[in-house]
Design a protein around this nucleic acid. Structure first.
Lengths: 218, 218
DNA sequence: TAGATTGTTAATCGATTAACAATC
DNA sequence: TAGATTGTTAATCGATTAACAATC
């Protein structure tokens, strides 16, 4: 029986990883798995896995472990993958096009319904049968189509403006690739993908490693 | 004077954000800033900012705060931005091309030296004056060019194979866009960008309210 | 039944926040 | 000097790990 708890971000961020590993196990026809075995594969502790899962329900069985298919499906439900999501991409530059072309998201139930840009050279071009529209049509499009997730791939200077349009038109989820923080009401969820921050984290760690070169550990 | 401490991942991941905000302040000709003021802008606590910075040195001054330019430069040093990095991209599909075209990384000192793919239709094409080479040349290229960071943009099935080549050729940093976990020796740093995990986190949070609706606590 | 492994409580560890003396 | 704000220690909070009774 699921408990009414506020789940910490730390737990939430591990869920997709569980889902990915269980999906692999499933494809390899593994029927059951213990928290210990899963822990060894993922690199978590068995204790953490059991704690994490027990935030959502009693999915396992003493003496047996977890049924892979069942757990996979349960985590799918938890992640909201039993429904579909309509999305639009704003900004059809490098990243926008890459995301638009990435068909794996379709398989998970994220359906791309529109692509917008302000560059006349891009407007009218199709990506996966979706014609790039003038961003001036965005607001109107959002009023006529229910969109769950707006994907922001514009330069940082324009990101907040696009976010404001999303908010105004009832889009509740924003996947933000612009290197800036957006301000939105609290009922709107923003998930950031800040590539430069990721790269800088890498360069920090590269130099930290250099620093300890020749020494043991780490 | 930097202290010999092991810095936690939580702190490291905040550093690029400090760097970004300080860069903005600098461009807006802000000369000094207190931890309180910076906290209000970023959305951290002043205490946390002071704690974070004091892992690396005494950058502030009582009664004054922090000099924006000085702190910006110091964090740049900490992040390893006083040197340059040679990079290669393996996989010239959607994401690979997007990263290759993203010139902001050049400005930070990350220089793209090569792009590799196995698709004959892509080999020979140029992106930003860099000719896409056959991935069969990768190992040879790495032996003749010092590459600091290898960027993996191939499908997940081939990612580990590419990582192995990187490791074998002395590449110490891997920026991994393939939706899989790589196994590498501990002196090699892997920074993952798992886009589907990010998207699933968003869909979880979009549905979170629904998930616990009507369920009783304990 | 006996062994295995969960769900869950308790202990530990780490990270964040609060407080304040030091000092510019 | 007086006010401001740091650097740093102490207190709190939260997350992870360990332990084990429950039970399949």
């Amino acid at each position: 029986m699921p408990k009414k708890t506020i789940i910490s971000m730390a737990v939430i961020k591990r869920l997709p990883k569980y889902y990915r590993y269980l999906g692999e196990l499933l494809r390899n026809d593994v029927e059951r798995i213990s928290s210990k075995e899963l822990a060894d594969r993922i690199g978590f502790t068995a204790s953490q896995i059991r704690q994490d899962l027990n935030n959502f329900g009693d999915f396992g069985q003493q003496g047996y472990g977890y049924n892979v298919r069942f757990l996979y499906e349960e985590i799918g439900k938890i992640l909201g993958l039993t429904r579909t999501y309509n999305t639009v991409i704003v900004g059809a530059g490098n990243i926008g096009q890459a995301i638009a072309n990435y068909t794996n998201f379709e398989k998970l139930g994220f359906h791309l319904k529109g692509i917008f840009d302000r560059n006349p050279k891009l407007i009218g071009i199709s990506i996966r049968d979706i014609v790039i529209q003038d961003v001036d049509n965005l607001e109107n499009f959002l009023k006529n189509n229910h969109i769950d997730i707006g994907i922001i791939c514009v330069p940082k200077e324009q990101a907040q403006k696009i976010a404001d349009i999303f908010v105004r038109c009832g889009v509740k989820g924003i996947w933000n690739f612009a290197p800036t923080d957006l301000s939105v009401p609290e009922d709107v969820i923003v998930e950031n993908v800040h590539l430069s921050e990721s790269l800088l984290t890498l360069s920090y760690r590269l130099n930290e490693a250099e620093l300890f070169k020749g020494k043991t550990g780490r």
